[in-house]
Design a binder for these strands. Structure first.
Length: 563
RNA sequence: GGCCCCAUGGUCAAGAGGUUAAGACAUCGCCCUUUCACGGCGGUAACCCGGGUUCAAUUCCCGGUGGGGUCACCA
């Protein structure tokens, strides 16, 4: 069999060789210690926490050492493609603080050229194109070389034939797949190939595996250290009928010619390492450093079992979930860092105000077992993040969020800027700031009593106070209310009412001697608090009233007396 | 089923051949306090099992078990 002739027959119009591309895409000239990483999503229009998790690793690895992080679009499967996915992807990643130096970018980015296939998107950089669908001739040059060397061959088997083989293998408890004797078109003669081609038969190109499963190879992984696996024996498809490569081959070719140093990807790819190792070797290329990170898991309510988060079942996996609830992007990032990197949380405690980019990120500190997603922990991290923000930052963020997701609230926020700045400033700054703000939707619910439009009674009146006493407390309270009182003068008046009506001024007295009083000052001020805020819990009432203004205070008290 | 990865409190996790086995979240109690939040103090709670190696294994090795992943012309 003349392999060179076969290669010519299959790819008559491919005139470049891999060697030519070596020159077109030379080794990068980077400072010592800098690395090239990449994010390589398929444009399905769906971005999830796991993508962000990986993207953060790519971004940190590259940027903390002055390296390059680029974005490559893996669009070799037109079935999965979603129109407009790339600009959305870029926007979302940017929202969460991930920016790329090279590759796919937004249309209009300086130094970029438009991409015809994708509206709103463009690309830049010397190692492109960055859409795999535009790189067909590069892949084919590499396939042609493999065919010419007898390492790959055309396979004309139909889907039915393959299904039959698989069925027989499964029945016989053999490993399924096209390998060894099942690779029926491995050794077709040139004439046979010519004949089938002339008949218009379609084909794929398969790699001719010389692997021996009793032989093991070793690959280094940045997280797990050395991984040892048996050699691959499958004649995997490297070029599909649509003239584009499979993931396996595209990965090898692109990460080689784009000069990627570290391949960060999900651990689900570890199983195909034997294929990749084999392909790199066949091409005569150096294998990159892999960084297989773990999946985010959750406990399935139905089964009680730990399982990988799934985009169909778990809305909390989608990044849009956090955006819609109004989590600060920084909070999501901090949370991811704390579960991603075992030493981040300690570092953060020691450096509460330092930019997280100052943290020294190291892959060997990354988790190597599947991490259970914990919304509790996210919320806790978020509270700390928001506690560090200024009232103006909170306000601006809320406004931006409401503009996109809740127009009614947007109007309210917009009209009451001065008041809200004061609201968000309650107990902010200082040594022990309040930590009750978590995400926009929750924050709005938390402050809703500042608006008549959203005020409602959410708590029960204290059981210790009778209805008559309640009305009496409120009447006396509003009679004596003077907004110019300072906090202690104001509270003295509340104490006065408390004592007059037979309640204990000191809660301890009541606790010691419950029969001597109807209740204590906490119950009396509880009545006032519910009247003003609609709930039993709130920040310091005096402060709240100062912010609300006298008119609103009066209206609330009157409303409560009527109730 | 084959292959691979993983295994420390409920969760995230540090850790070394000999430790009272960190810390954070959650939880419980107390303190502060007119409520909440913050803060402080304290409590409950863990090395999957069985063999080996060793004076000594939770730590190293082997084997189970459990969980996860993967076996496409999808990535």
């Amino acid at each position: 069999m003349d392999h060179k002739k076969l290669a010519e027959l299959l790819f008559p119009d491919i005139d470049k060789t891999p060697e030519d591309y070596e020159k077109i895409y030379p080794e990068r000239d980077l400072a010592e210690g800098s690395v090239v990483t990449r994010l390589a999503p398929s444009p399905t229009g769906y971005i999830h926490l796991g993508n962000l998790y990986g993207a953060m690793v790519d971004e940190r690895l590259a940027h903390q050492g002055g390296g390059v992080c680029y974005l490559r679009i893996e669009d070799t499967d037109e079935k999965r493609e979603v129109e407009g996915a790339v600009p959305v992807l870029l926007d979302t990643l940017s929202y969460f603080g991930i920016e790329f130096d090279e590759g796919a970018c937004k249309a209009g980015t300086p130094g970029s050229e438009p991409v015809p296939s994708e509206e709103g998107a463009a690309q830049r950089g010397a190692y492109g194109p960055y859409w795999q669908s535009m790189r067909s001739s590069i892949y084919k040059a590499c396939v042609k070389k493999l065919v010419a060397e007898g390492k790959a061959y055309p396979c004309f088997m139909t889907e039915e034939e393959i299904a039959d083989i698989r069925a027989a293998q499964t029945a016989a408890k053999l490993d399924p797949g096209i390998y060894g004797q099942y690779a029926k078109h491995r050794d077709l003669t040139l004439e046979e190939v010519e004949r089938r081609l002339a008949e218009g038969q379609e084909y794929v190109v398969r790699f001719r595996s010389e692997g021996d499963p009793s032989r093991y190879f070793k690959v280094r992984d940045a997280i797990r250290g050395e991984i040892s696996m048996p050699e691959n024996i499958q004649d995997v498809v490297i070029l599909k009928k649509n003239d584009l490569p499979t993931y396996h081959f595209a990965h090898v070719v692109d990460d080689h010619f784009m000069r990627t140093d570290i391949v960060v990807r999900g651990e689900e790819w570890m199983a195909s390492l034997p294929i990749h190792e084999q392909l790199f070797k066949a091409m005569g290329w150096e294998i990159p450093l892999y960084c297989h990170n773990t999946s985010l898991m959750k406990i399935d309510e139905a089964t009680g079992q730990k399982r990988k988060l799934s985009k169909r079942k778990d809305p909390e996996l989608g990044l849009s979930f956090y955006k819609e609830l109004g989590y600060f992007p920084e909070a999501v990032r901090e949370y991811l860092m704390t579960i991603l990197c075992s030493d981040f949380e300690q570092w953060r405690m020691a450096n509460p105000d330092t930019d997280y980019n100052e943290f020294n990120f190291s892959p060997d500190k990354m988790s190597d077992s599947g991490t259970l997603f914990d919304i509790n922990k996210l919320n806790d991290v978020s509270k700390d993040v928001l506690a560090r923000k200024s009232a103006a930052q909170i306000y601006d963020f809320m406004l931006g969020w409401a503009e996109e997701f809740d127009k009614d609230k947007y109007a309210l926020l917009k009209e009451n800027k001065d008041m809200l700045l004061k609201v968000f400033d309650i107990d902010r700054g200082g040594e022990k700031p309040r930590k009750d703000l978590v995400y926009a939707q929750q924050i709005f619910a938390f402050i809703k009593y500042f608006f008549d439009e959203t005020f409602e009674y959410e708590s029960e009146w204290p059981a210790e106070v009778s209805e008559e006493d309640r009305a009496e407390i409120l009447r006396r309270y509003i009679e004596g209310y003077d907004p110019s009182d300072d906090n202690s003068a104001w509270f003295e008046k509340v104490r006065g009412i408390t004592a007059d009506l037979g309640y204990a001024v000191k809660p301890k007295d009541y606790k010691k001697n419950p029969d001597a009083y109807k209740g204590h000052v906490g119950h009396v001020s509880g009545v006032i608090r519910i009247a003003i805020t609609g709930r039993a819990n709130s920040p310091d009432l005096w402060t709240v009233q100062q912010i609300m203004g006298t008119e609103m205070v009066r209206k609330r008290i009157e409303k409560a007396i009527e109730a």
